[in-house]
Simulated assay, not measured.
Amino acid sequence: MATTRLGEAEVHTVGELPAVGSAAPEFTLTNGDFADVTKTPGKRTILDIFPTISTGVCQAGVRAFAKLAPGLDNTEIIAVSQDLPLAVANYCGAEGIEGLIVGSAFRSGFGTDYGITMADGNWRGLLARSVVVIDTDGTVLHTQLTPAIGTEPDYEAAVAVLR
């Protein structure tokens, strides 16, 4: 179990992020067309994980990773939340955001498998803000659970492992 904060409240997750150097758990998410999304074999993957696209910080994270995407060779960025896939896809479309994949976890055990479902607090059941970077062979290169849900992740640390 890991700990982050939601406002002033301490919040626990159901587990821990996968360890750097370990094999990333396989996942199946749902995109804006309700099709399955999995890690593309042979590509590096950044999982931008957040509670809901309805908050400014979550929106900022999606925009920031989308801006970084063109400079990252052989890398896909998947925006992961418990939101319905239409919500994130509609937000990205309305904002002109391109370069990332919508990946809703609403049908899957992703949050449990990655240890980042919030187990308590007002937002229990949503995903805690975090980042996981996975290499082409499925090895975890980097993880970060932000110290607070309202804190943006360290974008530079996430992409630095890919350079």
Rank of each mutant, 00 (worst) to 15 (best):
Asp36Ala: 15
Ala66Leu: 08
Ile46Arg: 12
Pro25Ile: 09
Ile49Asp: 07
Gly93Gln: 10
Leu29Glu: 09
Pro18Lys: 08
Ala79Lys: 06
Leu86Met: 08
Glu95Val: 08
Ala64Val: 02
Gly61Trp: 00
Leu29Tyr: 05
Asn90Ile: 04
Gly21Asn: 09
Gly56Leu: 02
Val88Glu: 15
Val62Asp: 12
Glu76Met: 00
Val88Ala: 15
Gly61Gln: 15
Thr13Met: 02
Thr52Asn: 01
Ser22Trp: 09
Ala23Ser: 13
Ala79Glu: 08
Asn31Arg: 04
Lys43His: 14
Asn74Phe: 03
Gly15Trp: 05
Val11Tyr: 10
Ala9Asp: 14
Asn90Phe: 04
Ala19Thr: 12
Ile53Gly: 11
Glu16Asp: 13
Lys67Tyr: 01
Ala69Lys: 10
Val37Tyr: 11
Thr40Trp: 02
Val57Met: 11
Asp36Thr: 08
Leu86His: 07
Tyr91Pro: 02
Arg63Gln: 14
Tyr91Phe: 15
Ile78Thr: 05
Phe50Gly: 12
Lys67Thr: 13
His12Trp: 11
Glu76Thr: 07
Ala35Gly: 05
Ile97Ala: 11
Ser54Lys: 12
Gln59Ser: 13
Ile49His: 09
Thr13Val: 01
Ala89Cys: 00
Val88Lys: 14
Ala60Arg: 12
Ala23Gly: 03
Asp36Asn: 14
Leu72Gln: 04
Glu76Pro: 01
Thr38Gln: 12
Gly61Tyr: 00
Thr13Trp: 02
Ile78Phe: 03
Ile77Asn: 11
Thr52Trp: 03
Pro85Trp: 10
Glu26Ala: 15
Lys67Ala: 15
Leu72Ile: 10
Ala79Ser: 15
Gly32Lys: 07
Arg63Gly: 01
Val57Gln: 05
Val11Glu: 09
Ala19Asn: 06
Gly71Pro: 02
Gly15Leu: 01
Pro18Leu: 03
Thr28Lys: 13
Gly99Val: 01
Phe34Leu: 14
Gly7Phe: 06
Gly71Cys: 02
Gln59Trp: 09
Ala24Val: 00
Phe34Ser: 09
Glu98His: 10
Asp83Leu: 03
Val62Gln: 05
Thr75Ala: 09
Ala60Val: 03
Gly99Leu: 03
Asp83Lys: 07
Val62Ala: 13
Cys92Asn: 11
Glu26Gln: 13
Val88Gln: 15
Leu72Trp: 01
Val37Ser: 12
Asn74Ala: 05
Gly21Leu: 05
Ala66Phe: 03
Ile46Met: 10
Ala69Thr: 05
Lys67Arg: 15
Asp36Val: 00
Thr40Phe: 02
Asp33Leu: 09
Thr30Met: 12
Val14Tyr: 07
Leu29Lys: 07
Gly56Gln: 06
Ile49Trp: 07
Thr55Asn: 09
Leu17Ala: 10
Asp36Arg: 12
Gly32Phe: 08
Gln59Glu: 09
Val20Glu: 12
Asn31Glu: 08
Ile78Tyr: 04
Leu47Asp: 13
Phe27Ala: 08
Lys43Leu: 10
Ala9Leu: 11
Lys43Cys: 06
Leu47Lys: 09
